[in-house]
Nucleic acid binder design. Structure first.
Lengths: 313, 313
DNA sequence: CGTGCATTTTTGTCCTAGACAAATCGACGT
DNA sequence: ACGTCGATTTGTCTAGGACAAAAATGCACG
């Protein structure tokens, strides 16, 4: 297996660390230590890219780069492996091990994780679909999909899952949820909801879960999929006559960007259109004027009912 | 409607032009001309961001930035509006106006475009689903979806569609195609195909179309969705025991990145796994060792049959 | 009047090295 | 245990220079 050296653009693609960050780490922490090609441009050894991937994962778990790069490689590896259900080292990872699945949903979780691990997509799809039919869409979304997402995200952070295994899971779950949405009758009732994510947020499951629950409540849902530019969110909201714009932020989305993005979009949207944000990405977010945040989906469903009660008056 | 000034990061998000490009344009062409905030950082007026969006569209149409920024604003506007079915100014836009719809498919195209324009998602979904059922999945994909994608992409480039209208179309088409895929029996026959796109390529319709046709041929398809890191593509291909890795590149994907990406992935994959690339993004691509390129879907389907004939020997 | 090849222009990306604000940490006092 | 305040950490921004790949142009030749 030939593993070639990579340019800085390729490392950015593979690790998600920006070029600026890669260069400043090299200057500050002495890692990574890329060699140079004939043009004086950085080329990274595959082993160093592996370590960068690991560091990235641990950072999502709450560690900070200065510490991770200060300790030795062996200490780094020991951080990745242990305590799959242990305590998180920092408040950043709170709620990560929320799962702890009780009763039926917990057993299903274990089964699903095992199927992902075995890369058995057919059985995975079947298990998910069966669970959806047995529990009903509403309970499936809140009691099964939500903890499963946490569990898969957690498995990825701890290195138990590769990125492609998360993709595998996401794709099958997406198929099941979309199939369910397709069978729901198209409502034309208020509120009219516009669902999407901001650029750089490509996780779609949160959006689909919200669409399921809102549609079950009889709201009129239009989804734009992921990564809509803010300006186009405004255009779409006006074109659709939307009452509410709902955004989803995953745990992996860069925390520091959330507040400025929501503020900016709030400035773009007409005052009459509500702005809701949900997902683990808004967990540690303070109050923002004109923006409602819901970490859990049942809170958002309650907000929908409140909206209706208020609209009726 | 309050339209605030934007930071360079926000402009990158909205226009897709990199920070480096924005800065070097300012230096070379004298546009844009951002003001500065209290920290000496660039802040862009909303009107300039509008112009940048327009320039970006025209560039995808084949124009080059030096010319576009050298001429006046009014000349720029006149380039965007006219010749909706006219000649393209450069070879880059060749094949864009391929549509020219004949017979039934052509009329359907017009109807669908009109529904998108009116933002009538329910009717759009219904029209697409009905066409799929009437024509059958295979003919629907090759004769209707393919020209529709071109037409929508074209409408976007000429400024007739906003980004959100393309998202609207994509989301409804995706729902129809996924619904069709879900009803196909899960095959376990060779070849085992792994479908995905590279990072930065978020267009999924090409992937879904390929999955439809390959699955109709009885191949065993596993999709990872969009934007899988190259290293994970390799891991997934090995884990799945894939015979073929199939990638989709849209017309909007930066041309210059395609060849290096394919070469790098070819280096990562074991020699026994074939690498196929498809979509309008590989139209102007030369030969690459160990990589097969198919601009049209029927070529890829033929390649699938050839693979089987060869495997049987 | 095209057509192939060489040269010039255009254009995006990479480089260095410094600076700063926001977030986080850690210590202190209550 | 809890809030406040300074110190540290960290990502992103800035400047202007450089270069290679792609595109456009010029030019000779059939």
């Amino acid at each position: 297996m030939n593993r070639p050296y990579m340019t800085i653009a390729a490392v950015e693609r593979e690790t998600g660390l920006s070029k600026d960050t890669l260069r400043v780490w090299e200057r500050r922490y002495g890692f990574p230590t890329p060699e140079r090609d004939g043009n004086g441009e950085r080329i990274y050894a595959p082993e160093q890219v592996d370590k960068l991937r690991l560091v990235r994962r641990l950072m999502d778990r709450g560690y900070r780069p200065g510490r991770l790069l200060g300790i030795g490689d062996e200490a780094l590896a020991s951080l990745a492996a242990p305590a799959p259900s242990g305590e998180a080292p920092s408040p950043a990872a709170k709620g990560a091990a929320r799962l702890a699945g009780a009763s039926e949903a917990g057993a299903l979780c274990q089964q699903v994780l095992e199927l992902v691990r075995r890369h058995d997509v057919a059985a995975l799809r079947h298990a998910l679909h069966q669970a959806m039919v047995r529990q009903g869409l509403g309970r499936f979304v809140t009691d099964t999909v939500a903890p499963l997402n946490s569990a898969v995200g957690n498995a990825w952070m701890s290195g138990a899952f590769q990125v492609f295994e998360e993709h595998l899971y996401t794709e099958q779950m997406q198929a099941v949820l979309r199939q369910a949405i397709a069978t729901l009758p198209a409502a034309d009732a208020r509120p009219r909801m516009l669902l999407t994510t901001v650029p750089d947020e490509q996780h779609i499951l949160g959006l689909l879960m919200a669409e399921c629950l809102f549609a079950l409540e009889g709201a009129s849902c239009v989804s734009l999929g992921t990564q809509t530019p803010l300006y186009d969110i405004r255009l779409a909201a006006e074109a659709q006559g939307a009452d509410v714009v709902a955004l989803s932020f995953s745990a992996a989305f860069p925390q520091r960007q959330v507040a400025p993005l929501l503020t900016q979009l709030r400035g773009l949207l007409p005052a009459g259109i509500a702005l809701w944000a949900g997902g683990s990405g808004v967990e540690r977010l303070g109050e923002l004027p004109g923006v409602k945040c819901y970490v859990r989906l049942d809170e958002a469903v309650q907000a929908l009912r409140d909206w209706r009660a208020q609209a009726a008056s």
